[in-house]
């Protein structure tokens, strides 16, 4: 495999040592088909062990390694460096979340917001002996929304969140969609009551950043719009 010299900048921050994050420059040689994660591993394993970041599955399903590279939110494990051809890599943690250390951000609020939309089937009917019936058409309503890996790339890219940390954010709203539009669910009204809030769905100004950031190419904005229509139908 042909090697390639690259130069990159990483936003570093150790709260025990620095007051503010700072840019650190690295120069190294990597395989041409390396991913951003390969580059981070190379630095962490062979250049500076104190660099911290999150990663786990390497196959774009666990959602650990969402980062901002050259202004774009991406998953480090699935993004090859040649995507940013000719440009110097600039790697920083997901914006909009507090930094814990280096590229690691605090996602507790993100998961807490998920909890608030009641992300579980709410049933008011008796359980059948076997499965609930759901037609393939009904399943296809939620087929795309269940792809969400909760990486946070969308919520982090949302300008509404940057200015208002209490905004639920696209990931939680997508999860609300996934349950409200599940044919088996009886809890739509409870969830609508939760998201029909000034800090809920109405902080979404249809900016489309979330769709652009989503590594799974989910049409998040479209689903949020469907939710808005549903809420209006229900509450007026």
């Amino acid at each position: 495999m042909a090697k390639q010299k690259i130069k990159l900048k990483i936003l570093r921050y150790t709260p025990e040592k620095q007051k503010k994050p700072y840019w650190s420059t690295y120069q190294l040689e990597v395989d041409q088909d390396s991913t951003v994660l390969d580059v981070l591993n190379e630095i962490h394993w062979n250049i500076d062990g104190s660099l911290s970041y999150r990663r786990s599955c390497r196959s774009a399903i666990c959602g650990s390694c969402a980062l901002k590279v050259n202004g774009q939110n991406i998953l480090a494990c699935e993004t090859p460096i040649h995507k940013f051809k000719g440009k110097k890599l600039k790697i920083e943690p997901l914006p909009g979340f507090p930094i814990i250390k280096d590229l690691v951000v605090d996602m507790d609020n993100f998961f807490e917001k998920l909890r608030q939309i009641k992300p579980f089937l709410i049933l008011k009917k008796p359980l059948p002996d076997k499965e609930f019936t759901q037609s393939p058409e009904q399943f296809s309503e939620i087929r795309e929304s269940i792809l969400c890996i909760l990486c946070g790339a969308c919520t982090s890219s949302c300008p509404s969140l940057w200015s208002n940390k209490d905004y639920l954010g696209p990931a939680s709203l997508l999860k609300a969609y996934r349950f409200i539009f599940d044919s088996r669910d009886d809890g739509a009204m409870e969830r609508i009551d939760m998201i029909n809030d000034r800090n809920g769905i109405w902080r979404c100004h249809t900016i489309f950043n979330c769709m652009e950031a989503c590594p799974k190419n989910i049409n998040i904005t479209e689903y949020i719009s469907k939710l808005k229509v549903k809420i209006v139908e229900n509450s007026i």
């Binding site: 359980l127 499965e131 609930f132 019936t133 037609s135 393939p136 399943f139 939620i142 088996r184």
Partner: peptide, 20 residues
């Protein structure tokens, strides 16, 4: 285990007649 999962809300792909 499967029926429990389905009742919890696991979105399984379906057959034409709506079964798992």
């Amino acid at each position: 285990t499967i029926y429990e999962f389905e009742h919890m809300g696991v979105p399984f792909s379906r057959t034409e007649d709506g079964k798992i």
